[in-house]
Simulated assay, not measured.
Amino acid sequence: MPALPDDILARISRIESQLRETTGRAQIRPPQNTAVGGDLVVGGTQALRVLKASGVGDQFLIGQDGGQRVARFYRPDGTIALSTVVQTTVWDGAGNPVVQDDPGGVGLGRPYLPMVAAPARTGDWLATTNATFEDVWRLSPIKLNPRATITIGHIADAATAGEVQVTVAGSPVGSPTTVGTSQTATTVGPFTVPGTLESTVDIRVQARRTSGAGSVRLAVLAASGFHS
């Protein structure tokens, strides 16, 4: 076999080196079902749809659907759990919306939250004449929020003074509030709600008379859970 020129041998060596480098890169690249170092982009009128393991039915869908930008997440049984179209909605297993933001763009649309009512006439408020703190109002909420607030209306009869305080699980929240002869509303909190999630919490609104011969009157005007 005749000798090959040096430039041909050099070319063959370079080709072999490039083949080895290409093969090595192919072995270390991420698998084709993994995105590393970049975004997975779905544009236009398309959507990212992830099917169940069976291949029938969606686990979730994000993108365009029916001309709208949507996101939908499904339970294993196929019922919808969470969706975002015009509103963000959490659905129960029967297909009823249980939590929604408001379509007007501000605040909560569902659920409808209860409000507290109290007598407008202070003479109808519960009262105490005790010289030591007495439970006048009691709340037993189930803990869902980490903190809470209570607004208390209070007033003392003529020539009488007193104090009001809130206790949670038997411990006072802060310092007592002075009660005078002018009708006043005091908000206590936000204070920490003790216990585990969904446990029952013992909250008391207490009052006492510190001077005079009349009564110290009070009403719970509002009570609400609060965020951290």
Rank of each mutant, 00 (worst) to 15 (best):
residue 124 D to W: 11
residue 131 A to L: 08
residue 113 L to F: 13
residue 135 D to A: 12
residue 111 P to C: 04
residue 122 T to H: 12
residue 109 G to F: 11
residue 114 P to A: 14
residue 104 G to A: 13
residue 104 G to S: 12
residue 113 L to Y: 08
residue 104 G to H: 12
residue 130 N to S: 15
residue 104 G to N: 15
residue 104 G to I: 07
residue 138 R to E: 13
residue 108 L to D: 02
residue 106 V to E: 06
residue 115 M to F: 14
residue 138 R to W: 03
residue 137 W to T: 00
residue 119 P to H: 04
residue 119 P to Q: 04
residue 134 E to S: 13
residue 118 A to P: 00
residue 125 W to D: 00
residue 120 A to T: 10
residue 136 V to G: 02
residue 119 P to S: 04
residue 128 T to P: 01
residue 110 R to T: 10
residue 122 T to V: 01
residue 129 T to E: 06
residue 117 A to I: 07
residue 115 M to A: 14
residue 130 N to H: 05
residue 110 R to Y: 13
residue 117 A to W: 03
residue 127 A to T: 03
residue 109 G to A: 10
residue 135 D to P: 07
residue 120 A to G: 10
residue 105 G to F: 10
residue 108 L to H: 03
residue 125 W to A: 01
residue 138 R to H: 11
residue 108 L to T: 15
residue 117 A to T: 15
residue 137 W to M: 02
residue 104 G to P: 00
residue 121 R to F: 06
residue 109 G to C: 09
residue 129 T to I: 05
residue 120 A to W: 01
residue 137 W to E: 06
residue 113 L to E: 11
residue 135 D to Y: 01
residue 110 R to N: 06
residue 112 Y to V: 14
residue 130 N to K: 08
residue 103 P to Q: 05
residue 119 P to F: 02
residue 122 T to K: 01
residue 123 G to Y: 03
residue 121 R to D: 15
residue 118 A to V: 00
residue 108 L to K: 07
residue 117 A to P: 00
residue 119 P to M: 04
residue 106 V to T: 15
residue 128 T to Q: 04
residue 135 D to V: 15
residue 119 P to E: 02
residue 126 L to Q: 14
residue 110 R to F: 05
residue 133 F to R: 10
residue 126 L to S: 13
residue 103 P to Y: 12
residue 132 T to F: 08
residue 119 P to N: 07
residue 129 T to Q: 11
